[in-house]
Amino acid sequence: MEGLDLLKKDWNRQQPEDKKLSVKDIYPMLHKKSSSIVKTLFYISVGELILWIIINSIPYLFSENYKAKLDHIYKSDYLLTSLTIFSYAVIVLFIYLLFKSHKAISVTDNAKTLMERILHTRKIIKYYVLYNLIMAGVSLALGFYYSLTKDPKFTNAIDNYSNNEFIFLIAKIIGVVIIFILVIWLFYKLIYGLLLKRLNRNYKELKTLEP
């Protein structure tokens, strides 16, 4: 007898009686907090939804000036109104998709399916963040465009700029956007990297078994 068969013989002989728990020991365990990654992922996704809604509403809620300007533009501009309705519809859609994919995660599925469903949920959050970043970019560009065409103060200021100064201003805006995106990207890499490290490693291993 060698290798695994030797181990099998011993494995079935061994009974870890020293770790035998009584009914009394087990009861309190049922009400302890779980430290499962699915639970953490759920909290992250809810946090994510709230965070981006707050980020998008902060300027509107706290700056009277901005609010007045925006309300004026909304009244007169069809594009911005539809864009806002669209962005709320997208948030509702993401809430629905996240809820659905969280519900689909079941610990009684086979290992591969379970991993795939968790990764699917993570993907939805990723798309949500991506969508918000794109929307932030679009808003920035639109804001710039509106200021350039409809804000006399801004137009006057720009008129006084030399060509070089204007290019420098654009470069500065692009630079800030790149840094902002980079920081967010690193932040996500870190959060999900740590959270899903084991899952990703094991999923990869399972995938290599199925060429």
């Binding site: 430290s35 499962s36 990654i37 699915v38 953490t40 610990v107 009684t108 599925d109 086979n110 290992a111 379970l114 991993m115 968790i118 959270l195 084991r198 899952l199 094991n202």
Partner: peptide, 17 residues
Amino acid sequence: WMYRVGLNTAITLYRKS
């Protein structure tokens, strides 16, 4: 059923405290 849930927890869900 326990084998499945047990292994799934160990290889996927469990986050080391």
